[in-house]
């Protein structure tokens, strides 16, 4: 290997073992092709399994029926689907405003020590293992009240959303030219109006995308819900009660020993993935702004 080194100090070219060097190069390049192929294989396998197993168990009553005991035909995850939507709603209602507000702060105070510290801590929060968020929410919101609740689950998910939303909001606001802010101020806009109705408004498509990415990410989270939302075999949309969620239902069916439930878990996983993908795809569309791109 070292023998074939072509570049030596001083930049002199050493034409040694040219054929061997060519072969080594070709082999290594082929290896990167193989690595790329291998890196995409798991996704293809997983999606293929999901489609094959999931589509078969996916009937319309999957969306409309409640879970049934083992052995009974039919049954669905209506309560889990509703629960997941409810949890997403709670998490977004809390996480989006706080995340966007924090992002505005980071963008407007950029360069100050406070902003740097908050940005850094936001990244730390983003790297927090989801299970730690789960036990934290349990300790804070479940333990003192002695019962699980949708609200606790939603807040746990909001904790995961905030840093993502804050950072994308900051990035998007940074893309808005300073000149636009100045133009609004010069027109007699107050600072808060400038920030909200000019700067934030201009950055909105990107912020919506970031928000949707955050929602897509928390939609499939399970660990923060294990000891907070907990799951529920029955229909519930009460924020104070334990609530079912698609990921929780998939989890409990997957670790069960029954083929029927495995089939339900596949169907649930397919629905969950579809939900995540729909949100992600709408995120792409959200980036298209109302008036398109003109001059500049």
């Amino acid at each position: 290997m070292t023998q074939s080194t072509a570049v030596v100090p001083g930049g002199r070219r050493v034409p040694r073992n040219v054929t061997r060097r060519r072969v080594v190069s070709a082999v290594m390049i082929v290896l990167t092709y193989l690595a790329a192929a291998a890196a995409t294989l798991p996704l293809i396998f997983i999606l293929a399994n999901l489609l094959r197993q999931g589509v078969g168990s996916l009937h319309w009553h999957f969306f409309t029926s409640m879970p049934k005991p083992v052995g009974e035909e039919g049954g669905g995850m209506a309560n889990a689907i509703a629960g997941t939507l409810m949890l997403i709603t709670i998490a977004s209602a809390i996480g989006l405003p706080i995340g966007i507000g924090a992002g505005l702060f980071l963008a407007e105070q950029r360069g100050t020590r406070v902003a740097n510290v908050v940005r850094f801590l936001s990244d730390v929060l983003n790297g927090l293992p989801s299970i730690v968020v789960g036990i934290f929410a349990w300790q804070l919101l479940v333990r003192p009240f002695h019962h699980f609740s949708a609200l606790a689950g939603g807040i746990a998910l909001a904790v995961m959303m905030i840093p993502i939303v804050a950072r994308t909001t900051e990035e998007m606001i940074r893309l808005v030219p300073v000149s636009l802010r100045e133009a609004a101020l010069a027109l007699g806009y107050t600072r808060w109006r400038t920030s909200l109705s000019i700067v934030l408004r201009s950055a909105l498509p990107g912020i919506v995308t970031g928000a949707l990415v955050a929602v897509a990410r928390i939609a499939g989270e399970t660990a923060p819900l294990l000891f907070t939302a907990f799951g529920n075999q029955f229909w519930s949309t009460s924020p104070g009660q334990p609530i079912a969620a698609l990921p929780l239902q998939i989890f409990s069916y997957a670790i069960s020993p029954y083929d029927d439930w495995h089939a339900q878990a596949w169907a649930g996983a397919l629905v969950l993935i579809a939900l995540v993908l729909v949100i992600s795809v709408s995120a792409r569309f959200a980036t298209r702004s109302r008036y398109g791109r003109g001059h500049d």
Binding site: I46, A219, T222, A269, L272
Partner: peptide, 14 residues
């Protein structure tokens, strides 16, 4: 983008 629990499901059953 694939949720962890879906990886788990695939892990258990495949």
């Amino acid at each position: 983008a694939i949720p962890s629990v879906v990886y788990g499901l695939w892990g258990i059953l495949v």
